[in-house]
C-alpha cells in the first residue's frame, strides 16, 4: 500500500513541482550567462569604455542577483507545494478521502514525507548546481571549477570552511539531506498540531508553531557555536574548524533525531487526536 500511496502523491505534486524546477533552471542558466557577460565586459574594461558598457554591466549584475533570488524562491516554492498538499489532503475536506483509506496512518504520513523529501532534495540539488554555475565566472578567476565550487558549498555548509576533502564534502551532503528532512518533518508536525489545537486559523497556528520551534533550535545551536568558539582560545584556525565541525555533527544528529520525532509525533496525533471539522 505504501507504494500506491507514494505513486498517488507523486501524481498529485509532479506538475507544480516540475514547473518550479523548470523556472529555477531557466533563471539559473540566464543568471549564469548574465554574470559571464558581466565578467567578459569587466575583463575588457578600460577607461575609454563607454557609459553604455558600465550601465549594461550594472543591469546584468542586478539581473544575476534577481536570477539568484528566483532560484532560492524556487526551493521555497517547492517546500510550500509539498506542505500545502500535506495540509490539504489531510486536514481539509479532502482529508475525508485520505483518512478513510484502509491504510495505516504511518503509511499515509510516510508516503507524503518521502515524496516531499525527494522533491525538496531535487530542488536543493538543482539550486546548488545552478548557484555554482552562476558563480563559475567569478570562481574561475581563483582557479576553481564549478564542481569544486559545489564541493566547497557542501563542506562549507557543515562548518568545514575551505576544505574539499571527501569526508568534509560527504558530511556536508549528509547535513543538507538531514536539514531537508528536519524542515519537512517540522512543517508536517506544525500543520498537524495546528489542525489539532486550533479551532480556527489552523494554518496560522501551524506557521507560529513552525517558526517558534525552528527559532528555538537555531538559537540553541547558535549559542553552542559561540560557546565552542569562545572556549577555544588562541589555538588557531584549525581548531576553529574542528570545533565548528564538532558542533555541526552534534547539530546534524539532533536534527536527524528531531526529524524522526516530528514524523512519529505527526503520525500519533493524526491517529489519536486530530478531528476533521
Amino acid at each position: 500500500m505504501l507504494g500506491k500511496l507514494i505513486a498517488y502523491e507523486f501524481r498529485g505534486v509532479w506538475k507544480p513541482a516540475l514547473i518550479i524546477l523548470v523556472i529555477m533552471a531557466v533563471a539559473g542558466v540566464a543568471g549564469s550567462m548574465s554574470l559571464a557577460t558581466v565578467d567578459a565586459l569587466t575583463d575588457n574594461y578600460s577607461y575609454s569604455s563607454s557609459d553604455v558598457t558600465t550601465d549594461l554591466s550594472v543591469v546584468l549584475t542586478l539581473f544575476t542577483l534577481f536570477a539568484g533570488f528566483i532560484v532560492w524562491a524556487g526551493v521555497v516554492g517547492l517546500f510550500i507545494v509539498t506542505v500545502v498538499r500535506f495540509y490539504r489532503t489531510m486536514f481539509t475536506d479532502e482529508g475525508y478521502l485520505t483518512l478513510t483509506l484502509p491504510v495505516s496512518t504511518a503509511a499515509l504520513v510516510m508516503a507524503k514525507y518521502l515524496v516531499g523529501f525527494v522533491i525538496m532534495a531535487a530542488g536543493t540539488a538543482l539550486a546548488i548546481i545552478l548557484y555554482s554555475m552562476m558563480l563559475a565566472p567569478l570562481t574561475s578567476d581563483y582557479g576553481l571549477s564549478a564542481s569544486t565550487t559545489i564541493l566547497a558549498m557542501l563542506s562549507g555548509s557543515f562548518g568545514f570552511f575551505d576544505d574539499q576533502a571527501p569526508a568534509a564534502v560527504a558530511a556536508g551532503a549528509v547535513n543538507a539531506i538531514v536539514g531537508i528532512g528536519y524542515q519537512l518533518g517540522l512543517a508536517y508536525l506544525a500543520l498537524t498540531m495546528g489542525a489539532w489545537l486550533a479551532k480556527r486559523h489552523k494554518v496560522a497556528a501551524a506557521v507560529g508553531i513552525y517558526l517558534g520551534i525552528s527559532w528555538l533550535l537555531s538559537l540553541m545551536f547558535s549559542v553552542a557555536n559561540v560557546l565552542a568558539l569562545v572556549g577555544i582560545g588562541d589555538y588557531g584556525w584549525e581548531m576553529v574548524t574542528m570545533m565548528t565541525g564538532a558542533v555541526s555533527v552534534a547539530q546534524m544528529v539532533c536534527y536527524a533525531v528531531a526529524a524522526a520525532a516530528c514524523v512519529a509525533l505527526s503520525v500519533f496525533l493524526v491517529r489519536r487526536k486530530v478531528d476533521l471539522s
Partner: peptide, 10 residues
C-alpha cells in the same frame, strides 16, 4: 464506506 456531507474530491 463513508459518505460525508460535503464533497471530498480534489
Amino acid at each position: 464506506s463513508f459518505l460525508p456531507e460535503r464533497p471530498y474530491f480534489s
